[in-house]
Amino acid sequence: DSLGIGEEAALVDAETGEIMGIIEISEKYKIDRDFENSHVYRTTDPKHPGVAKVNEQAAVNIAGRVRALSEGVYPEKYKDLYLRPAESRAVFAEKGWSKVAAFQTRNPMHRSHEHLAKIAVEVTDGVFIHQVLGKLKEGDIPAEVRTEAIGAMIDNYFVKGTVIQAGYPIEMRYAGPREALIHALIRQNFGCSHLIVGRDHAGVGDYYGPFDAQHIFDELWPGALITQPLKIDITFFCTKCYGMATAKTCPHGKEHQINISGTKQREMLSKGEPIPPEFSRPEVVEILRKYYASLNK
């Protein structure tokens, strides 16, 4: 609270101590935590990870123009993944892509994710798999392992040249529908025309409905975002269709549906249980099994 309007302050990485940037303070205000939590996260429950982050903050926020001095470890640590917006736009232009669908993920891609991406490939020029390189939840799979697993899926199950894998440094806040909007805005900067929005995008627990993150885009005014949602229904493996489907394409009952969950898959992997082929590709499972085996050594 000692900083004043018009002053400059260093923005420091709390873990490394590196100065990441300089902020010129143009505004300062005390946090109304309940107001922020209820509007951003639609809950004040302290068990929500995003609410917990807000509640841990100091009493005063500052705002202003930021001058970046460093991108941290990301450009060096993730050389093959780290693309800046100008670089992704240049790649799209080189490929002749004008309609690009971004796919946000913090997980290795299972069969439902693959199906979402393939639907997008059908209606756009290509898919930009843009994964989280920032902090993850406990139990999440590290970016290096995730990248290898996603690469195996792309190499074996997608037509060459239809998918680009990249990453960016963001920490998930699990704000559900409100986070879907910021994900779309970020991908707009990267040059994407669409954001794939499936079931419970950026959700956690039971705080949001399965399609809240799709409905929020309908509340925006015309021109609010250039990047539009590519809304796709719940995906599953149907034993009667004998393939991946959505609630809009499969007429069969729930007794024929195998619902695929990243959380369930992680549980099975951690216990050494077999992963059904309806859940994930064998090449992906092999990579993930090696990772989980290394945790037990």
Rank of each mutant, 00 (worst) to 15 (best):
G205I: 00
R111K: 09
D212F: 08
R187P: 02
I119T: 13
V100Y: 08
T44S: 00
A166M: 03
I150Y: 06
K53Y: 12
L69D: 14
N156D: 01
A184E: 13
L133W: 05
V127S: 12
A245E: 05
E283C: 14
A52W: 04
R266D: 15
A143R: 09
H115R: 10
R289A: 01
M268C: 12
P210E: 06
I287G: 09
K99H: 06
D34Q: 00
C250K: 13
F92S: 11
I154A: 03
I154M: 10
D80S: 13
G198Q: 07
F103M: 05
V197H: 00
H215W: 02
Y291S: 09
K77T: 08
A10C: 01
V159D: 13
I287Q: 09
E27N: 02
D155L: 03
F103Y: 05
A52G: 11
K160E: 13
E283S: 01
H113G: 08
C238E: 02
T246D: 10
Y157W: 11
G176M: 04
G272E: 15
S270Q: 02
P108K: 08
T16C: 04
G134K: 06
L181V: 03
T105F: 13
L195N: 12
S261L: 07
K77H: 05
P274L: 12
K99G: 14
G17N: 05
G253T: 04
A152Q: 09
V66S: 07
R67Q: 06
S193P: 06
A93Y: 01
N107S: 09
G198L: 11
D45Q: 11
P108S: 07
E148W: 02
Q214T: 08
K290R: 11
E24S: 09
L185S: 03
S38L: 05
E255I: 15
I258D: 01
W221F: 08
S280N: 01
E71N: 11
Q228Y: 14
P251Q: 15
A152G: 01
E114Y: 07
K297P: 03
M20H: 01
I234V: 13
P282T: 04
G126F: 03
L195Q: 06
R67D: 15
E286G: 12
A166T: 09
E15R: 14
E7N: 13
Y207C: 15
E71I: 03
Y168F: 07
E219V: 10
A102T: 14
I186E: 04
T147K: 12
L136F: 15
L81P: 14
Q57L: 07
A202F: 07
K240R: 15
Y41S: 00
T249N: 04
T227V: 14
K160G: 06
F103W: 15
A245M: 11
N37W: 00
P169F: 15
G50L: 00
G253M: 08
S26C: 15
A213D: 06
S38Q: 03
N189A: 01
N189K: 13
T162A: 15
L288W: 13
K290Q: 04
Y82P: 07
K99E: 06
G6F: 11
G191H: 11
R84A: 08
H110T: 00
A213W: 01
C250Y: 06
